[in-house]
Amino acid sequence: MSSKKIRTPFGPEVARTLRAGDRVLLTGTILTGRDAAHKRLFELLQAGKPFPVDIKDMLIYYVGPSPAKPGRPIGSAGPTTSLRMDPYAPALMEAGLRGMIGKGSRAKLVKDAIVKYGGVYFAAVGGAAALIAKSIKAAKIVAYEDLGPEAIYQLEVEDFPVIVINDAEGNDLYEQGVAEYKRA
């Protein structure tokens, strides 16, 4: 199956060209963040304080990587379940975040925010963490080092394989895919 190659970060005009079901290979810079980091970012937002990293047009990858072995940029690094970040995602998109990479369904509020802000939600293959790590060429902690695996990393990725789940038109690949294969 053919894949679209996209450079990240990207703006809403690129996000709007993506459709649920598209295979995409991402190259460029992405951020990581999961439960604890999202809680902190959200609290900063509520307090009207600046973020420790610039999230404009960035993708956040929901991942808590395993420790890097010597000589490697990162350990195994597959996606974690996205729904736990649902309470925070719309506010982050309003603040400039372009999209998210994770696994599993999103709440309606998140899907609506993707349509509203011209965003995108990608899934990576959950559990394929050693394979995915091959496309991560560099990693550095840019915020919240004290959170250990939950720190915010900046990743340099090359042909990082994802699939579009929710697009800016409101489509949802999980709903479409399951409907196609459901048996009575």
Partner: peptide
């Protein structure tokens, strides 16, 4: 992925 983890001796999943 399972093959890579086995051969390179790294975690199959980050969790």
């Amino acid at each position: 992925n399972a093959r890579i983890a086995r051969e390179e001796q790294c975690p199959i999943c980050q969790d």
